Amino acid sequence: MPGSGADLELYREKFRRRLPDSLDELRGPTEGIVRPPATVVWSGLRAFDLGDERLRVSLYRTVLAEGVRGDLPALLNREILLRLWPTLRTLTSDTIRGVWETEFPELRALADVPPDRPPARRDTDVA
């Protein structure tokens, strides 16, 4: 992570440039299996079942951190993002959380909502 104030501002700007103009642009899938491009997920798990809460959170966390402007509307869904935000905001970096909450008051309004308790790990989950 960047150390100086100027480096930190450049780091924030990297994430600001990726943001959609509105959360309404986020019209990604709400069900099924999502396979993000290799530019978003280049190793490890490559397919995410939106019916599985853990995988849905993992996908959204990864897209927030690694997705570029075009990936966000294709992979994220406004309603799911709003529902997951209390949890996601605890799993993302301060920079990502700050950029999203500064730009979108509807996310900032969820800052005091307690995160969901993570679903129990199933025996079929892969480490």
Rank of each mutant, 00 (worst) to 15 (best):
Y60C: 03
L10W: 11
D94M: 13
G98V: 09
I96L: 11
T102L: 04
L26P: 00
V126N: 07
L107S: 09
L64E: 02
P73A: 07
P29W: 03
G3A: 10
R54M: 04
L8T: 06
E25F: 11
P118R: 05
T95Y: 10
R27L: 08
T124R: 14
P86Q: 06
L8E: 06
S4G: 07
G98A: 13
L8G: 00
A127T: 09
R121A: 08
G70A: 13
L50C: 06
D21N: 11
D24I: 03
A38Y: 10
F15K: 03
A109T: 06
A120V: 13
R46W: 02
D125R: 10
P114Y: 10
G32M: 12
P20R: 05
T39S: 15
P119K: 12
A127F: 12
W42T: 09
D52G: 00
R78A: 08
L84V: 01
L110S: 00
A65W: 00
V34T: 03
L64H: 02
L107A: 10
R46P: 01
G44R: 05
D94V: 15
T87E: 06
L84C: 05
D123I: 10
R89S: 09
R97E: 02
G32R: 13
I96P: 02
N77V: 03
R17A: 10
D49V: 01
P73E: 09
T95H: 08
E9R: 14
R78S: 09
A120S: 12
A120R: 14
D24P: 01
A47S: 15
L75C: 08
R27Q: 14
I33E: 14
G3N: 11
T39I: 04
V57T: 05
E9G: 02
V113E: 10
A120E: 15
L45C: 13
V41F: 08
L50G: 07
A65Q: 11
F104Q: 05
G51M: 10
D52T: 05
L75K: 04
D112F: 10
T102Q: 12
R16A: 02
R18Y: 04
E13C: 07
E53N: 08
L91F: 06
M1Y: 12
D71H: 15
A120I: 12
D125I: 05
E9A: 14
D112G: 10
E103G: 09
L50E: 07
L64D: 02
S58D: 13
E106I: 08
D24G: 13
G44Y: 04
T92C: 15
T92K: 01
G70D: 12
L88Y: 01
Y11R: 06
E103D: 08
P86W: 03
T30P: 00
L64W: 01
L110T: 08
A65P: 00
W42P: 00
L81N: 02
T62D: 03
E53W: 11
T124A: 14
R16Y: 07
W85C: 01
G5Y: 04
L23A: 10
R16N: 01
A111Q: 15
P118T: 01
D116L: 12
A65E: 12
G28A: 10
P37R: 09
L10D: 14
D125M: 06
G28E: 03
K14E: 11
L110K: 04
P118H: 07
D71G: 03
V126A: 14
V68Q: 14
T92F: 02
V126Q: 14
G98Y: 08
R46I: 06
E106F: 07
F15E: 01
A38I: 07
V68E: 15
